[in-house]
Design a binder for these strands. Structure first.
Length: 290
DNA sequence: TGGTTGACCTGATGGC
DNA sequence: TGCCATCAGGTCAACC
């Protein structure tokens, strides 16, 4: 599932193949793939035509392409199964192709004759168009916190937010207004590395504990990024349709009944918030009931 | 106001 | 072989 490392891999691909190119035409094949656009898909198409894409940007799991000379951006969220692919115009259509963007070819294009495709099996993701804030951020994601790989992420502010909250640590890690980019997979991986149970109350966190956890979050994300992200199936791929390899390095997620790589105890899976949490019952002791 | 829950969505899988 | 239930999970509106 696309979390921060996977989205960053896609952003880098877009930077290489799409940045600087001018939109010739847009085809919306599934109206739901255009999000939050009250004027409809036709208006979305009209507003993109003739504009050049600037350098792609990312915050957490969101990425956006600024539209030159417009003060607005095309915002993309991949949801659970979204893909942004750069394909030749002759390439066969994907079964779940939702939006196609064609470009005006120009001298210097890295990949003339190619187009950008948004493919999404479950249609949890989509593209949308928004005005930029003075910081250059699409206005609808102004509430999204910086992600832990952002040099301006404030560790101390995050620690204070944990101390103030009456919640548990995995909920906090998935709260995109506290820290962005972390999803179910990397939350479980970071908590396993930090030997923390997912139900531990955030109000009990000491500053060293928070710093240690953030270090593990960053380590696991950087490790995933270095091998192209995590792919369990064909649902996550980079812009060239290639899978990442980090699933082979996962220590917690998806390892129910397999031995913990630290102590050998069988890993457990517990239903949690309509999803699953994977943990080692020995290394990650549940908090004492208060 | 902050925390929690369920709907959205479709393909894969397993049980009968 | 076909039908049905279940599962996967990020976001956000609605609810408490």
């Amino acid at each position: 599932m696309p979390e921060l490392p996977e989205v960053e891999v896609v952003r880098r691909g877009l930077e290489r193949w799409v940045g600087g190119r001018t939109v010739a035409d847009v085809e919306v094949l599934h109206p739901r793939a255009v999000r939050r656009h009250l004027a409809g898909a036709d208006d979305f198409v009209h507003r993109l035509k003739g504009h050049a894409f600037g350098a792609p940007m990312r915050r957490g799991k969101y990425l956006w392409l600024p539209l030159a000379d417009s003060g607005s951006s095309v915002l993309a969220h991949l949801g659970m199964s979204g893909q942004l692919l750069v394909k030749t115009q002759q390439a066969p259509e994907e079964k779940h192709l939702r939006i196609r963007v064609r470009f005006e070819d120009a001298a210097g294009d890295a990949a003339p004759g190619t187009e950008l495709r948004f493919v999404d099996q479950r249609t949890f993701g989509g593209l949308s168009l928004h005005e930029n804030t003075p910081d250059g951020l699409p206005d609808v994601i102004a509430h999204i916190a910086r992600d832990p790989l952002d040099p301006l992420f404030d560790d101390e502010a995050f620690h204070q937010a944990l101390r103030r909250s009456r919640t548990t640590i995995k909920r906090a890690l998935l709260n995109q207004s506290l820290i962005s980019g972390v999803g179910n997979i990397y939350a479980d991986e970071a908590l396993w590395r930090a030997r923390l149970h997912y139900e531990r109350p955030t109000a009990t966190f000491t500053r060293p504990r928070t710093v240690q956890l953030l270090g593990h979050v960053r380590d696991v994300m950087n490790a995933a990024l270095s091998v192209g992200g995590t792919s369990f199936d064909s649902l996550y791929v980079n812009v060239n349709g290639e899978s990442g390899y980090f699933d082979r390095s996962l220590d917690a997620y998806g390892r129910e009944d397999e031995p913990c790589r630290r102590c050998g105890t069988p890993m457990r899976r517990r239903p949690w918030m309509n999803r699953s949490s994977y943990f080692c019952p020995r290394c990650q002791r549940p908090p004492r009931a208060s």
